[in-house]
Design a protein around this nucleic acid. Structure first.
Length: 565
RNA sequence: UGGGGUGUAGCCAAGUGGUAAGGCAGCGGCCUUUGGAGCCGCCACUCCCAGGUUCGAAUCCUGGCACCCCAGCCA
């Protein structure tokens, strides 16, 4: 990276950090964290956050913590913990040995709660959930003080202790901060610090039956870990006064909370609840379905972590609510794979071609370039014979205007091979094309001095006797609408699911080399797109490929336009 | 209608009183044995609106408008 690039734009958070460094606010330390709740799988929005937090730590020579905000046992599971750790590592967030859990701080938090009670800043409240809601007031009207607000410190201490011991049922009591029931910010109207939850915690077991609420817990977690910049999303902006209040009342180390806009993508949903619903109602095959915007989904689809990082860097950081065009994400993976992916020939929807003037039984070994963007990738040998497969869409019996590919009487080049001419179309009784009889021009062999005749198009092909059969899964956007949540009366985002988001092709014909593809290996199938051998289902000898993303398709655009005219 | 935020191109996003970067998308052209890639060019007389200050305003002031978030014992 050049100096210019290094000094390139700073987002507003880095500007704040630069200022803090200048004023020595945190004695020159930089320490960030990624604090997910283990109640679901990570998605692309989390990738943005990890990239931001880890990126800052790395850039400034600071530290980055992985911390589970596991304060609600009723929603959290070990399965999620495991997957999240895996995902953060895959994205490249290096937390070294700092895999931390908020639940490990429960004792300290409890102590601090006692400290607040002793300071007269917290009280045990017997109001029910409904009563608390009813007395909270509205956005425009102040709330009413709880009748339990002025219990004695001794009574509060006793009650809170008994809450912890399990003497009271769920929902019967809470510990509340004594702030201001008339505060214009409703978060400050005596917020709940602890609720009673007789439930087993995935790490703490049955040690606790009172669990801290987010607002109470989060700042304490940051403070304990010595976080300098606690970066979160915009919806927590309203909570910052509370974050600050708790820390200030306790008089403990005070990190700075900064909020930024969460990521939204067109044609995509990033809501843990809705993602869960897609999985549970089996609209997708699981959290790692290649159509899911989850990290595991992208990973299985064939995205690289580098491309996701590039994407995150590209979109920037701000406080503006935004919806990023998913084309930017697609661009980032194309950009990388164009430079790195080995090229290959694969016919997805085959139609057989017979070269009537090519000697029967003859096989030629042709040389193909592995990656025109990278000379060091070298070349490989592909077999050529009398019978081959080409793509159905590379032949039109009645070619539309500007169609350069094969049609009766027309010529086209077979990539790395010969120019062929379509002489005859063979159909079955129903009129389906089953074979194309062509002739080849022996003087047109690629690489020979007489090969330079120009034809309008070059198409890919796979020699029939050498072809490897494979399953290829064509993925498309999961939703039909840019904003899947935009629905008519009575409909939901589920009604916007793209019924054609997955097309499974089982009769694909691949060049021999592809038969040995290792799971996770990526290729460009020339003229078709980028494909990745499925990490679960693909086996050497029996490959299964996922389409990561198509190539840009100029012809499709031309044809679309002409159809509209 | 209380409080907290945000408004720069179709989508992101720089810009911090000196005359609107960049990327994605789109549109032309060149090149091409991938209709890919690459290369060249075009794409905001104007920054939500209206006033004001100033020699000069996207930037400062005043007043509007629009959109987002908040009334979980979720995070």
């Amino acid at each position: 990276m050049s100096i210019d690039e290094k000094e390139e734009k700073k987002d507003f958070i880095r500007e704040i950090i630069d200022e803090d460094l200048k004023t020595n606010k945190f004695q020159g330390r930089i320490h960030t964290r990624f604090p997910p709740e283990p109640n679901g799988y990570l998605h692309i929005g989390h990738a943005k956050s990890i990239n931001l937090n880890y990126g800052i730590a790395k850039q400034y020579g600071g530290k980055f913590n992985m911390r589970f905000d596991d304060t609600n046992p009723s929603k959290e599971e070990q399965e999620y913990v495991d997957s999240i750790v895996d995902d953060v590592r895959w994205i490249g967030g290096d937390f070294e040995d700092r895999l931390l859990y908020a639940s490990d701080y429960f004792d300290k938090m409890y102590e601090w709660a006692v400290q607040l009670i002793k300071a007269g800043k917290a009280y045990v409240c017997d109001l029910s959930g409904d009563e608390i809601r009813d007395t909270r007031g509205t956005l425009t009207e102040p709330g009413k003080d709880s009748p339990y607000r002025n219990r004695s410190i001794e009574e509060n201490l006793d009650l809170f202790e008994r809450m912890r011991k399990g003497e009271f049922p769920n929902g019967s009591k809470t510990l509340r901060a004594k702030i201001d029931m008339a505060a214009p910010n409703v978060n400050l109207r005596d917020p709940i610090m602890y609720r009673i939850l007789h439930e087993s915690h995935h790490r703490q077991g049955d040690k606790w039956c009172v669990y801290p609420m987010y607002d109470w817990a989060h700042g304490l977690e940051d403070s304990i870990e010595g976080i300098t910049h606690s970066i979160c999303t915009l919806e927590f902006e309203n909570h910052r006064p509370l974050y600050d209040w708790f820390i200030d009342q306790l008089g403990i180390y005070h990190p700075q909370q900064i909020e930024f806009a969460r990521l939204n993508l067109t044609y995509t949903i990033v809501s843990k609840r809705k993602l869960l619903q897609l999985v549970q109602e089996k609209h997708v095959s699981g959290w790692d379905d290649p159509r899911m915007p989850t990290i595991v989904g992208f990973r299985r689809r064939g995205y690289t972590s580098e491309s996701i990082k590039v994407f995150c860097d590209k979109i920037g950081i701000s406080k503006k609510d935004s919806i990023i065009d998913v084309a930017m994400l697609e661009w980032s993976i194309r950009e990388e794979l164009n430079k790195t992916a080995q090229r290959a020939n694969a016919v997805l929807n085959p139609v057989k071609v017979i070269l009537t003037n090519y000697p029967e039984g003859q096989v030629e070994e042709l040389q193909a370039v592995n990656n025109p963007e990278d000379e060091s990738a070298g070349t490989r040998i592909v077999p050529f014979s009398r019978e081959m497969y080409i793509e159905q869409e590379d032949f039109r019996e009645v070619p539309p205007p500007k169609y350069f590919r094969l049609s009766p009487g027309k010529e086209v080049r077979l990539r790395y091979a010969y120019i062929i001419k379509c002489e005859k179309v063979i159909k079955d009784d129903k009129g389906n094309i089953i074979e194309l009889h062509c002739t080849y021009d022996p003087t047109s062999k690629s690489g020979t001095p007489t090969a330079n005749r120009k034809v309008k198009a070059t198409i890919h092909w796979v020699s029939a006797p050498h072809a490897v059969s494979a399953e290829v899964r064509l993925y498309d956007r999961l939703f039909l609408k840019e904003n899947p949540d935009e629905t008519e009366e009575g409909k939901t985002f589920l009604d916007n699911i793209n019924p054609n988001s997955l097309q499974v092709l089982t009769q694909c014909k691949l060049e021999p080399m592809l038969g040995a593809a290792k799971p996770g290996e990526r290729f460009q199938f020339e003229r078709m797109g980028y494909f990745c051998a499925d990490i679960k289902d693909s086996k050497p000898g029996a490959p299964v490929f996922n389409r990561v993303v198509t190539l840009k398709d100029t012809w499709a655009k031309i044809e679309q336009k002409d159809i509209k005219r």
